[in-house]
Amino acid sequence: MANDEQYNQETQDSKLMIDHDYDGIKELDNPPPPWLMYIFYASIVWSVFYVFYYHVYDGPSQIDEYNTEMAEAEADRPVNNFDEENIVLLTDDAAMAEGVKLYASKACDACHGASNIGADLTDNFWINGGDVASVFKIIKYGKAEKGMTPFQSQLTDEQINQIASYILIKLKGAPTTNTKGPEGEEI
């Protein structure tokens, strides 16, 4: 075959290393491909620069990077005009529709349902107050020792208002799967 002829010619010249024979395996005297060596040298030079930049010239540490990222996020945060002191119970259909959607998407039922982890939200007994402002605050700021998640880092105040209203208007009085029995004061 043509390939073999070409190969034989190639191996007959000085490129075959004469005293290299290992169980019939021979070795050629080719230099390493130049591109490979150049990239290797370049990677060494890059490494020296990298170490100098971060450890001699004090490039940003990962904590510096983090602080920058947090400062930028803080600067970008939208202004909040929600009036937390005067929370109104929402009753319109749009709010109820949003409320039920958010209640499901945040998996509230995982704790406030059959698992008995959180309080029953369907009866008339309220541990932390049964008015819309109290429910709003519990959702927003959580109740750490009971494991209630503070949702202020996940939901806007408007959304929290919608969930709180949904709970008080639609959920209260609905059939329950929670079997803990009454807790807190009857309101």
Partner: peptide, 25 residues
């Protein structure tokens, strides 16, 4: 690879020098 590949291909190893460099590096 250095034993079985040249054996199966029945071809000499391309570069002895490269073997040395890449082994130690």
């Amino acid at each position: 690879m250095y034993y079985f590949l040249p054996k199966a291909a029945n071809r000499p190893v391309y570069s002895y020098k490269l073997s040395i460099i890449h082994f130690w590096a």
